[in-house]
Write a protein that binds this DNA or RNA. Structure first.
Lengths: 228, 228
DNA sequence: CGTTCGACTTGAACACGTTCAAGTCGAGGG
DNA sequence: CCCTCGACTTGAACGTGTTCAAGTCGAACG
């Protein structure tokens, strides 16, 4: 059956994610992953085309845990500031075990080569989920924005989350305290900007932003060649 | 003298940058760089601690060329939109020969590990230069913003440039046309936001943004361990 | 029971980035 | 002239990610 190898695959994922957490990306070798999973080196490559493919698995896990942790923290009727703040902090909470891995995380997660990029087609589902979480933030919070903004705001918030992740990865302050402060500082600003959309001056801004988002369109498909 | 090896070093940089441009990051091996520079493999490591160190050299070159190309394009008294647009397009122009390299470019350029990151201490000078270019954009353009914003805007524009670079790297549209459109769409929005700072509502936003930037402080020092 | 087939598994092999003990070589001092 | 010293150079060697020809093994078929 096509099911026989499922357990092997699971053992590989378990071993990889544990080693990533304990030793970081670089120090975790494919040989150790294979050994700890009780299979041969070559066999690991039967299930995962590359080491980065295993990182993709981590990406999915972090995403899932983010949803699970953030969901219960959302409060219907709370301000956008409060709910967005909760979701962003939850994101950091979920990623923090992989901090030492972090530098290499973006390294693997950002570029469009192959699967791992949040912009790639392979991550489309996961990205949709992440944007969905932001959509929940928007719809659940008090003072829901008007039509056009309601559609675009989740994606914009997701982009903000991405930016904060970049800061987190490069944040060497103890416990990444600076990133926490960044979240606390940025969320009210975002809320204020959203509130601005009610004024005439803000409405024009929203229109322009929406136009640019349409023009630039969906995140690009994966790049053809250009490995690594 | 300490000068004897300077020519060897130059030959290595020349070979590396040329190969990066022609074959991309992955396909360029240290062995080929060394061979084409007419030195041994080990000798390349006498001058550059790692392959990424050679990328740092590329980073510096691109930076320098960006300044040289963008400077003459600035028009005193033109709008912020026009000048910012010119500088951003110049950035893409300068980077485009390294597009195939691109995916790996961010891979190497973003994470804080060691030298190459724009956030690292080693890149502080280069970053200062990049922010300086944005400062020139601000001071040269018509309608210079008021005090606090005048200080912070260059850094914010540099961050915007970074974001656009991320888009460029992941942009698979032919000729990266989407990124060009993104620039054309985003620059008027930025100008509009800057103009907003004159209104009371904008003034409060500026104050908050400045506070966050202070709190988060200078970009972090390089991360201790966490290689790659 | 023998045969075939395909999912799964193996370990050797490859090219790579990086390290290092050993060497070369020219200038300066005795 | 010999010696020393330090900047520079070398190629072998290590461990890595990845590939691949060759196997194992159980189920389905005759």
């Amino acid at each position: 059956m096509a099911e026989r190898g499922a357990e092997t695959r699971d053992r590989l994922v378990d071993a990889a994610l544990r080693l990533f957490r304990e030793d970081g990306y670089q120090a975790t070798t494919m040989r150790r992953i294979a050994t700890e999973a009780g299979v041969s080196l070559g066999n690991a490559y039967y299930y995962f085309a590359s080491k980065d493919d295993l990182v993709h698995e981590l990406y999915l896990l972090v995403q899932r845990e983010h949803r699970e942790l953030a969901g219960p923290r959302l409060r219907r009727g709370a301000t956008l500031t409060e709910n967005l703040r909760a979701v962003l902090h939850a994101g950091i909470d979920v990623m923090s075990p992989y901090r030492e891995f972090g530098s290499s995380f973006l390294t693997v997660a950002l570029p469009p080569s192959s699967r791992t990029s949040p912009f790639s087609a392979d991550s489309a589902a996961a990205r949709e989920q992440a944007v969905g979480l932001m959509r929940e933030v928007v719809t659940v919070s008090r003072g829901r924005p008007s039509g056009v903004l309601l559609d675009r705001l989740p994606t914009l918030l997701w982009l903000a989350y991405l930016g904060i992740t970049v800061h987190w990865v490069t944040d060497s302050s103890p416990g990444q305290a600076r990133t926490r402060q960044l979240i606390d500082g940025v969320t009210p600003i975002i809320s204020r900007l959203v509130g601005l959309a009610r004024l005439p001056v803000g409405r024009r801004l929203v229109t322009d932003v929406a136009r640019v988002m349409d023009l630039v369109g969906a995140p690009a498909e994966p790049v053809p060649a250009a490995t690594r």
